[in-house]
Design a protein around this nucleic acid. Structure first.
Lengths: 211, 211
DNA sequence: GAGGCAATACCACTTTTGTGGTATTTTGAA
DNA sequence: TTCAAAATACCACAAAAGTGGTATTGCCTC
């Protein structure tokens, strides 16, 4: 039987790392040869453990996963790198792809997705996957509960989303084929319901709801 | 010897849950009697396992940890509830405290903090703890790397922070004892460096940096 | 000591937000 | 079918934010 593939975890979130390690070690074809918690330890760990694949978080002390990933694949030929992050952001995924990394996976991914991604990359492919809002309503930041708690209407939630994307009232009006005045009215009502008074507050609020 | 305290984990983030479970089960005085991944399963699980303590995430399908926590302590007298969340937000902590929950811990907390918090609450106390930026620079969203990559100055990072907290230019000027004009100048320079043009963009940006 | 950068500050002007009204139409539930 | 909520829309005015300049000071480095 072929020896299991060696994986290295680089993530300062220890508990998550531990959970991931037990999942991976339970697979006969995979073994976690080490975990490190800081970027500074990463290079020496790759030297020491010579893994086939590195799973890399984006948030690291002193640097970030993408830069570190670039450095790793440049320095260790054949080494493959998957970004493993909580950020469900197309732009970050694209950045990772452009940087030449082999994968982008969400920490919230299902076990199946994680394993599929890892095996795909190990066998020479790439695997880039964001969260599909259709298939996992629980990751929808503006879920029913959020709206219900605050008595927000459907339209209001829709407009909150667009504001949070950085659109101006004018752009929102354009996109929804409405008058700017209508958007301003909705904005007023939203601010009243949330008891806030500025875009900044709104976005802060949206973050807290789990965007 | 006293039987170990029974804990129930409620969190849809399975990997994190698994990691936490192995940590807790390794403690002689603690045992994880069950883990559930949705709020709907929570009530029946508490019935089945009658834990002393519930560790509860904020983001749950169909509801949120605070509401569920309120419901749990109302329904099961003596049951203690700790919110375990990724949100390092004073307002959420306060909400949890007002709601009568017994603790608020960050998923990024150290193992020590987690165990201390759990034991404190089990022995009848409360434990509310946010991240201390002084003691854990790695959780600082605007770390060196962020500033370096974008050529932001110290002052600029400081002002980004305040903008993201929802302060107006005037309020920032007041707080830093500067002229509004100075703040506006900094704002201009920040927007130029980040290639953006609105507060909303800035906050979006800050989120991506790991706020 | 010359040059560059960071931090401060001001002016003038435009655009966008935010506030406080009012009013009409659509729609769904009782 | 009637009633209330939701969605639409307008007006006017105040307050911020954003844009495009310029300018001074202090500090560090070459």
């Amino acid at each position: 039987m072929a020896p299991p593939n060696r994986l290295l975890l680089i993530d300062d979130h220890r508990l998550f790392n531990d959970g991931l390690k037990s999942l991976l070690d339970a697979q006969p074809d995979l073994t976690v040869c080490g975990q490190v918690f800081t970027a500074t330890d990463a290079l020496s760990a790759v030297h020491r453990f010579h893994p086939q694949l590195v799973l890399l978080d984006i948030n690291l002390q002193g640097t970030n996963g993408i830069d570190l990933g670039i450095q790793l694949i440049r320095q260790f030929t054949g080494l493959r790198v998957i970004l493993l992050t909580m950020y469900n952001q197309p732009k970050l995924l694209e950045e990772a792809r452009r940087a030449g990394l082999q994968g982008y996976l969400l920490k919230e991914a299902t076990t199946d997705q994680l394993l599929t991604g890892i095996r795909t990359v190990l066998s020479g492919g790439t695997f880039f996957k964001l969260d599909d809002p259709e298939s996992s309503p629980m990751n929808d930041p503006f879920n029913d509960d959020f709206a219900r708690r605050l008595n927000l209407t459907f339209r209001e939630v829709e407009i909150i989303r667009l504001i949070c994307q950085g659109l101006s009232s004018e752009q929102i009006a354009e996109q929804l084929n409405l008058s700017i005045e209508t958007i301003k009215t909705h904005r007023k009502n939203i601010y009243f319901k949330l008891n806030i008074s500025k875009v900044a507050d709104l976005i802060q609020f949206a973050i807290k709801q789990g965007l």
